[in-house]
């Protein structure tokens, strides 16, 4: 659609600008402020330059957390995206069953995140949880507060449980937009199921899948509450992801300078990756001629 040039449109955007500036720019500047200063308490600050940034970049703790974070985001994307597509393909297309599936699938998305943590904390306990009890009864040594492997599995399965529906619903929306004529043409051509998926369904889902990957990447990179409730970042530091580490540093130890420097770099990483995704997405929409 042709858009007209109208600089007065700024007035329509103004309320959003003011509101977001209040709740984003001011806090962000506070963070910037802390990141270049040091304090001895009593609100006495002095210039520290880039020291905190250097310190953070050299600290093993930050790199370890970043590494764990990348592994975690990579694993959950690798599981949730294919699984979400599979579920979307399996969903009924219309009728009462479609509604029921939609409602049930959306359920985990609307549970407060710490309750998600609580649910899995209970579910996984070896004494009172169905999962933990069953696994231990089967002879599997499963204890998410002590075992490194068990903790990781629990956190990953929990995230898959929590968010796969998001990918599935997005893919489903993409599938719904495919006209029936495409399938009929495929049938006339005697296309195999795989060919239908590869050449009709996947290209049509591409746009929404980009959104899914973007949202899942962003949110998994910021994950805090759920693993914090379940494992508290442990055993040891095994599941201490970036946000957990940051909150420990900022609110727990009150190391404002390093925490602020950490925050800014953390935010920059997310921005960078999201910018790449966003550019790809916009270009894709342009190519589709939308």
């Amino acid at each position: 659609m042709e858009k007209t040039v109208n600089h007065k449109a700024w007035f329509l955007v103004l309320p959003v600008l003011v509101l977001v500036a209040f709740s984003a720019v001011i806090p962000l500047m506070t963070v910037v402020n802390y990141s270049v200063q040091d304090t001895f308490g009593q609100n006495q600050f002095f210039w520290a330059g880039l020291e905190w940034f250097r310190e953070t970049l050299e600290s093993e703790r930050m790199w370890d957390a970043l590494g764990r974070q990348l592994v975690f985001s990579g694993i959950i994307l690798a599981i949730e995206v294919p699984l979400g597509i599979l579920v979307a393909l399996s969903m009924p297309r219309k009728g009462a069953w479609a509604s029921i599936c939609l409602v049930l699938m959306a359920l985990p998305l609307l549970i407060p995140w710490n309750v998600v943590g609580t649910i899995w904390q209970i579910f996984g306990r070896e004494d009172i949880g169905l999962l933990g009890y069953t696994l231990n009864a089967l002879g599997v040594d499963y204890n998410y507060t002590q075992g490194f492997f068990a903790a990781w599995t629990t956190v990953i399965v929990m995230d898959v449980w929590h968010w796969t529906s998001l990918v599935a619903l997005l893919a489903y929306a993409g599938l719904q937009s495919i006209p029936n004529a495409y399938y009929q043409a495929a049938r006339i051509d005697q296309a195999s199921r795989w060919a239908v998926f590869r050449h009709i369904e996947l290209p049509k889902m591409q746009g929404v899948l980009m959104i899914a990957v973007l949202l899942r990447f962003m949110d998994s990179f910021m994950i805090y509450t759920e693993p914090f409730v379940v494992t508290g970042g442990g055993p040891g530091n095994a599941t201490t992801f970036l946000s957990i580490d940051l909150v420990k540093m900022a609110l727990g130890q009150f190391d404002l300078g390093p925490a602020a420097a950490f925050s800014l770099m953390y935010f920059l990483v997310i921005l960078l990756v999201s910018y790449v995704f966003y550019t790809v997405m916009v270009n894709m929409e342009k190519r589709e001629g939308k």
């Binding site: 984003a24 806090p27 962000l28 506070t30 963070v31 970036l242 946000s243 909150v247 900022a250 999201s274």
Partner: peptide
């Protein structure tokens, strides 16, 4: 895009300044 970046801001970063 700037608006979208705020959707990407980790709440942990903003907790203390807020």
């Amino acid at each position: 895009f700037w608006l979208l970046t705020n959707r990407m801001a980790p709440p942990a970063v903003f907790a203390l300044p807020f």
